[in-house]
Design a protein around this nucleic acid. Sequence first.
DNA 1: ACGATGTTTGACCGAACGGTTAATATAATA
DNA 2: TATTATATTAACCGTTCGGTCAAACATCGT
Lengths: 215, 215
Amino acid sequence: MKKAEPQMKSGEANGNATDTREQILKAAEALFIERGFDGVSVNDVAVNAGFAKGLVFYYFGNKKELFDSVLDIYYTAQAGALLGAFETGGTVRDRLHSGIDAYIDFIEKNPGYPRLIQREICSGARNTDKIVQYMEPLHSWGTSLLGGMVAETGPMSARHFFVSFFGMVINYYTYSHVLGRLWGGNPLEESALRERREHIHSLLDASLDKYVTED
Amino acid sequence: MKKAEPQMKSGEANGNATDTREQILKAAEALFIERGFDGVSVNDVAVNAGFAKGLVFYYFGNKKELFDSVLDIYYTAQAGALLGAFETGGTVRDRLHSGIDAYIDFIEKNPGYPRLIQREICSGARNTDKIVQYMEPLHSWGTSLLGGMVAETGPMSARHFFVSFFGMVINYYTYSHVLGRLWGGNPLEESALRERREHIHSLLDASLDKYVTED
DNA sequence: ACGATGTTTGACCGAACGGTTAATATAATA
DNA sequence: TATTATATTAACCGTTCGGTCAAACATCGT
């Protein structure tokens, strides 16, 4: 048996810095989503990407920076996905609906995102800055849209609506595997996702009908 | 200087198995809430409780069992807190309101609970069984209450209302430190909590008014 | 062919990890 | 008080951790 021929399979040395970086990032993303920062070792990432551990440090310096790079990818993707949707015209009601749709679209295209970000939120103060950075555009979009139409403070203020609908949207996806067990089906299949989307839009309409004076 | 006198400070050897077990559990709970399973070492727990590491294994066998013991405490507490509230009388609307109140009460008395359980949910399949066990009573209470009054399937079915209100309730607490930064205040102070509670009840009323045919 | 530059590895480091164990301190029992 | 049973410690084990580093490999302009 002669030595292994140099054959190109995914995640093997390729001499291209950009490709390698991206392969490492892909592996890191998948693992961090599955097990969180503390549940993943740098060696896990390297092996899953098909490289030696040292290479991860060559490209990312340390584990925290690797993790932050993954977060930044999502942040950029989210910003890009929402920016367009936030600038559409129409009534406030229309704009709220299309903003929520854009956010759901983004989540469905990035199914790992809810778990990654929500676990980070639960982890307390460690990454608060980055999470705030994430939510700030969403938050200011939502609250400024509703701003003139609901009370500025109190139980029916825009900020509470924001938290409610944000939680309503994102939790369906973070809970999906539990809901699958509870319901006996796959909450992430296409028809179920359509159903969920419709539910949220209906609840938005119900809230606007009752608590927002005018469109 | 003579040897340290045997004085009783919190978390010191006391020869009492029950007390020691509880001190370890308390320390473990606080740390698991703050940093999650993988972010906490057994030595952390032992030191925080004021004992040697070996003692944790003496009482709990291994790290996973220690973690499960913490989860079980919350599960028992939750079950006890909700059982009474689920058996009150009145209209369906009244019973939904009082069930939600009981759940909020429980969370406010156990402020670490949302972070602990939600992070576990985000961590995927590892503890799905236990999480399902957690949510099953809540879920069946909510869906059976609404059962006869909304569609069995489709976007306005009981199951979707359950997810929406569950997420609405719990996310306010898991997001509190982020919301504090976003709003410039403390979302966990008493007046803010009252406000949040009122918001949720109002949204429930709006939903019932629009989508539930009769009380 | 050559060195220069960038890429990748594998061996290595000290620290921390989960877990074990023999020995000791304490409490209970007789 | 002597004996037994329990509670607790400190040292230890093998493994894995994040991180470093010198050497090897690849690429490419000259």
